[in-house]
Amino acid sequence: MKYYLLLICTLCSFSLHANELVNGYIVMANQDTIQTSIKIAGRAPITNSQILVTVDDARGEQLFQAADKQVLGYGFKLNQVSYSFRFFDIQRSFGSAFFRLIENGDNFLLYENKVKGIDRTAEVPNSHYVLMKSSGETINFTTALFSNWKKVVKEFVWDNPEALKALSDLKRNEVPAFVRFLNNM
C-alpha cells in the first residue's frame, strides 16, 4: 500500500512540472504566420501577457518578449476553446503586452489583459481593455475604481445614442456585455 501511495505522489509531482504544449500559431511582425507549439504551463518561462514561449523541432524553444515587437499575435485551441491574442503597445505606464480577444463582432472587437491594481487599500485584479472598431480605430482603458473609463468609451461611441444611453448605467464588470450589445445593434 505504501508503495502505491509513493508511486502516485511521485507521478503527481512529475506532472506538476511537465510542460504543457498546445498546437498553435504565431504571426510575426513581417506578417508571416508560423505553425508551432506554444508552452502554456510547466517550468518557467511560460507564456503570459508579456512573454510568448514556443517550441518546435526546427527552432527549439524560443522566447518572445512583447516589448520586442517581433510577434503581432498568436493563438491556440485548448479543451475546444480557441484563444487568440494580439500585441498592443499601450503607451503611458502600461507598456507593451499581449491582450486576449474576448469579444469578436462585426462592428467591435474587445481585447482584455488582467492587471493588478489598488482598490482603496487592497490589491485587486482589474481589466485593461482595448476596444477596436471595424475601421481599426482603437481606445484602451482600465476599469479601475477611480479611472475615467466611461468618459474614454463615451468619446469613442459619441455618434451612437443607444450606446451612450447603455453606457450611463454600465458597471465596470459589464464591459464585455456592453460590447456584445454594440455588436448586436
Score class of each variant (00 low, 15 high):
W149S: 03
C9T: 12
A18H: 08
T142P: 02
S37A: 04
D57P: 04
N148Y: 07
G75F: 01
M132N: 01
N104D: 15
I8S: 09
L78T: 07
T143K: 03
D119W: 03
G95A: 10
L109Y: 10
P161R: 04
I8Y: 09
V53H: 00
A58P: 00
F94Y: 14
S127A: 14
K133E: 10
K165W: 06
E103I: 06
G75I: 03
K69E: 07
S82V: 12
T47S: 12
Y83P: 03
Q65S: 14
E103F: 01
L164P: 01
Y3F: 09
I102T: 11
V179K: 01
S168Y: 07
V22K: 12
G105D: 04
I118K: 06
K114G: 00
Y129C: 06
K116H: 06
G42R: 03
Q35G: 04
L131K: 03
W158R: 11
N184L: 05
L164Y: 11
Y3R: 14
A166H: 11
G75K: 05
L11T: 07
N30Q: 09
T121P: 00
V152P: 00
I51T: 15
A41W: 10
R86H: 09
L5A: 13
S168Q: 13
Q50E: 14
L167N: 06
P176M: 03
V152H: 02
I38M: 05
R86P: 01
H128V: 11
F156H: 08
Q31G: 02
D159A: 12
I102R: 08
N173I: 04
L7Q: 12
L21Q: 09
K154G: 08
K151M: 07
V153S: 06
K154H: 09
V153F: 03
E155S: 15
D169L: 14
S15R: 13
Y3T: 11
L21A: 07
N23M: 03
V71W: 02
R43G: 08
R100K: 15
D57L: 10
A67F: 14
F146A: 05
K116M: 14
V53Y: 00
V153K: 07
